[in-house]
Design a protein around this nucleic acid. Structure first.
Lengths: 230, 230
DNA sequence: GTATTTTACGATACGGCGTATCGACGAGTG
DNA sequence: CACTCGTCGATACGCCGTATCGTAAAATAC
């Protein structure tokens, strides 16, 4: 009960109709989430995908939340980690982009990002790589740098994926969006209660998502001390 | 169907056992979420708290997600906005702390933060205030600043609340935590696979959450151009 | 090889969820 | 007072996570 998934042993592989393992369960769950979204992941469907009933999974997991933890850790395990010895800016920037890329491959990762403790072995490896890259002698300073960058990445990726989903839901292009949200926004801006926002919508250059992510990331990195590059 | 909550009119107040309104529904839902967590918010319970059946709410909402949108916007409406004319650093810092404070008052706000589009009137007002504070002449630059700070705040607050919940769940103090997670972490660190992390746990000063949030926030603000204060 | 113990499996079931449907009732209109 | 019409909420459907527990199969002991 108080035992964590990460160190609880799996049940021995019995014969059974289909052999099962935590790895296979997690892979099936990730595939399902990739294909139909996180809300389609249910123990029933994951079990069915493996030829098993839902209760079979409780030998490998004690809760659905544990499955989500394992899925998140699996994605952390996909991240390419920078070579040891990479400098702070380069290392943290590479890790930030790695997280974002992974979230584009597995959009549900964005929903899991800050939402659960995240102490799996792969998450720890990601944290270790972040700290190692950020460490320039002062450990407290490295912790601050990692916290700043990771928080930024978490928040930015989540918003970006949310926005991306909304755009996708609005008909393949913008049919629905133009019919529903856009006129609403135009009406709101026309009230005059949001003058700066209105100017920004009218006059701002609207960079693509990659550029927006990287531009703000650069600003965050600029704040971490060391030589200001810009 | 394509109509947004924000501009759909409420049904006229009929007699009914209890008079109802979107405002009362949202207030009840927020109270319930404050008391028992977001996962306890169901249309059945919210309805029951107002002396109504679950289906009654569908005159005011077309979906449960819309209720969540309204709840999030209600919290945005609680945020104290800085005086117009506040400088960028001061304004953005005040807004960041306002969001964090609100998330401590309504922990479920952290779960909603980046997860839904957020185009309600109060969210727009918050965005307007952020942009106004960040605007020093270059609108694109202001957008970058707001994106950086808001993303940081979103991510940091979500992680902080998640951590806070985990600590609270672990027995009132740390009984459970020390029995389950701590030994696991110690064992992981003892493997030698996370040397920097191990050093950080051993040697790092472990600031309280307020300090950690503000320290990283300062670094982010430092990166936004303008005079570096530190 | 047999008897016994252990244990994973999965059928069944429970309570809760979001919400579609639709009969009935009560207010507004002539 | 009769009628229409719109709102209400009871009922129901198909999901969900998971507790329980009989059973059958593997592991162990002899």
């Amino acid at each position: 009960m108080s035992e964590l998934v990460w160190e609880r042993p799996e049940p021995p592989a019995r014969s059974a109709p289909t052999p099962l393992s935590r790895e296979r369960i997690v892979a099936a769950a990730c595939a399902l989430a990739d294909a139909e979204g996180l809300e389609a992941v249910s123990l029933r469907k994951v079990g069915a995908a493996l030829g098993a009933g839902p209760m079979r999974l409780y030998g490998y997991l004690s809760t659905k939340d544990e499955l989500l933890d394992l899925m998140a850790d699996a994605v952390y395990g996909e991240l390419p980690l920078p070579e040891p010895g990479t400098d702070r800016r380069g290392g943290l920037r590479a890790l930030a982009h790695a997280v974002r890329t992974a979230a584009h491959r597995h959009e549900w990762f964005a929903d899991l990002l800050g939402g659960r403790p995240g102490l799996g072995p792969n998450a720890l490896a990601y944290l270790e790589a972040s700290l190692a890259a950020a460490d320039e002698g002062d450990l407290d300073d490295a912790l601050v740098a990692v916290h700043a960058v990771h928080s930024y990445v978490t928040g930015a990726v989540r918003s970006e994926i949310t926005e991306l989903r909304r755009e996708r839901e609005s008909g393949q292009d913008e049919t629905q969006w133009q019919r529903a949200s856009a006129p609403y926004l135009r009406r709101m801006l026309a009230t005059g209660r949001y003058p700066t926002l209105a100017r920004a919508v009218d006059l701002g250059s609207h960079p693509d998502a990659d550029t927006a992510f990287d531009t703000s990331l650069t600003r965050v990195l600029d704040g971490l001390g060391g030589p200001v590059t810009a």
